[in-house]
Simulated assay, not measured.
Amino acid sequence: LLSDEVVAHTRECVELPDTSEIKVVDRIRPSVPPDWYKPYEGDARGVSPMAAFGDGYRHHVTGLIHDVMGFPTQKPSEVEEFHLRQTKKISRGFPDIQMTKGYFLDDAETFVIAYGAVARSALSAVQEAREAGIKVGLLQLITLFPFPRRIVAPLLGQCRSVLIPEMNLGQMSREIQRVNQGVCNVVKYNRIDGKFITPREIYGQLIKL
């Protein structure tokens, strides 16, 4: 979960889709009697059946590391199993978890990779650069972890330079450099002075590339 103060305080109109257009994914329900129910005993995919409230199944909820019954535990074997199950679920779900949004990517020779509120500034700058005849695209990272390597790597292979604006000292740029391996020119633009990165700043960096 990305905590972004600017996004959190943004107020704007949204258009909600009709309920008929919303895909509802039902959780797996228990197939055993309530006395046999183990709420955190995953199936072959690591997914635990979830009983609905009122169905007669006991379900203990905690934010702590817990056993298959949902109660906190410090037993090494149960703690290890808890972490392994969570890790396997994420690993198997990479294609569904990794989310990005692309703008003007097909013919771009330069890319901006941005996330959070900075992606808004980046899109405005990219649109202005396009109007000026600069072949630039934007990849907005919606999911930061797991890092969407399978999406980022091909883009790095098709461009000359990539600009990474961040409101920190370059946390995401390190991931991109790790994937890049010297294929293209990676340029960082960072601010940590409490001021927001504006579209004009990003545009100013783009025309230098």
Rank of each mutant, 00 (worst) to 15 (best):
A44N: 08
A108M: 09
R85M: 02
G70E: 05
S173Q: 11
G56V: 11
R160T: 05
F71E: 08
A117N: 02
A125P: 10
V14G: 00
A129E: 12
M167P: 02
P33R: 13
T100K: 11
A132L: 09
P199G: 06
R130Y: 01
R92T: 12
E81G: 01
P17S: 03
L206T: 00
L64S: 14
A119G: 11
E109T: 02
E201F: 00
A52I: 14
S124P: 12
R191K: 15
P154H: 07
S20T: 06
P39A: 05
V179S: 02
R191A: 13
R29V: 04
S121D: 01
S124H: 10
D193I: 04
S48E: 04
R130C: 09
Y103C: 01
I164L: 06
R149V: 14
E5L: 09
N180Y: 14
V183K: 15
G182L: 06
A129C: 07
I142K: 14
M69H: 11
S91Y: 15
G63I: 13
V32G: 07
P34Q: 01
D4K: 05
V152Q: 07
V24D: 11
G137L: 10
V32M: 00
F53P: 07
L144P: 01
I197H: 08
G42E: 10
L139Y: 13
M99D: 03
P30K: 08
T110W: 09
K135N: 14
M172T: 11
T87W: 10
I22H: 06
F147T: 10
R191T: 06
G93W: 11
L156E: 13
S77E: 10
K101Y: 12
Q181W: 07
L84E: 07
K208A: 01
D43A: 04
G137M: 04
P17N: 10
V183R: 14
M50S: 04
I176Y: 06
V187I: 07
Y57H: 04
Y189M: 11
T10K: 01
E15N: 10
F196T: 00
E81W: 13
E166N: 05
R191L: 12
F196Q: 13
G170E: 08
Y103I: 08
A125Y: 12
T198H: 11
K75P: 10
K38N: 08
T62C: 14
G46F: 05
Y203F: 09
D55W: 09
G157M: 14
V183S: 14
I134F: 04
Q127R: 00
H59T: 08
V32S: 06
L16W: 07
G116H: 01
G137K: 08
I97Q: 01
G157V: 14
E81I: 02
L16H: 05
S77A: 05
K23D: 13
E166Y: 07
E128D: 03
T73L: 07
C184D: 14
V32C: 04
